[in-house]
Write a protein that binds this DNA or RNA. Sequence first.
DNA 1: AACCATTCTGTACCGCGAAT
DNA 2: ATTCGCGGTACAGAATGGTT
Length: 304
Amino acid sequence: MFDTTIRYFCEVARLGSIRRAAESLNVATSALSRQMANLEATLGTPLFERHARGVHLTEAGRLFHEHARATMLDLERVRGEIDALAGRHRGHIRVCTVEGLIGDLVPDAVADFRARTPDVTLSVLTDGTAGVVRAVADDAVDVGFAFHPQPHRDVEVYQEAVQPLHVVVAPEAGFRLPARPRLRDLINLPLIIPPDSSYGVRQLIDGVARADSLVLRPVLTSDSITGLREMAARGLGVTLLPLPSVHKDVRAGRLRAVPLADANLRDARVGILVRRGRILPPVTRAFLSRAGLLLAESSSTPAP
DNA sequence: AACCATTCTGTACCGCGAAT
DNA sequence: ATTCGCGGTACAGAATGGTT
């Protein structure tokens, strides 16, 4: 296939070793070594620094790597376009989502999409908001779902929806909350929140706390939404989450969720992210379109 | 420091399949 | 039948890390 050399190069660059790349690609090390040598000869410059424990990209190698990755993605898109011309809907979509959406929006979007296009496969990874943004920016995934994503030069918000942050408590835990709680009302309650600002929820809370000169003293932190929810459900404290992360427990009466009144928290958003400027394959565009519809439906309050 | 095993890349040579 | 491109095996050599 005409993209063999580029595919080989990307794998060597990714794994930093000709032997490991050969293993991953199911070819002999020598064959891969030769391919890379031929590529370097064609370009007239070394792309790798050879070391006893592997290879590193040279400056030229890094430049070529950027081109190679873009070429691979473009090739994938063109294949998709050709498949679409022939009436076929095939391909693979890589998704990265924050954990808070993996119990709800993302599986709904995947189920809806798979029902329409059963020949398209998907892989779904989870990460914090910062990790999702990075994965989209680096082209490591095709679509990202994030809570309150920070703007990034290489990332475009395909669609977003308001998803207010809620105070989440166990009904029987006995924490007294005002009818319209603000973050400052929670400051003396045992807070259970994500550990750092690489999580969208924490980034939002920290922003409001800074603006209101509040000092947050969480009694428990967890990098897992399930962890936050379950600790709150056991009455260990109050946590702050968007409704989709807890709505099943709220419906079951296991947790109570009250929207926060602070403007920034009321206006928190869930975003569907794509790499800026990337022309997506038809199946990915179709997935985005379905996911966008579901996101709009899931939004509990319309944007102002 | 010397030795040895391991890991990794590079080269020579060979076989296979497609193109001419 | 010949040529060409690609990949496999076998082997050499260099670097590294552990042991004595």
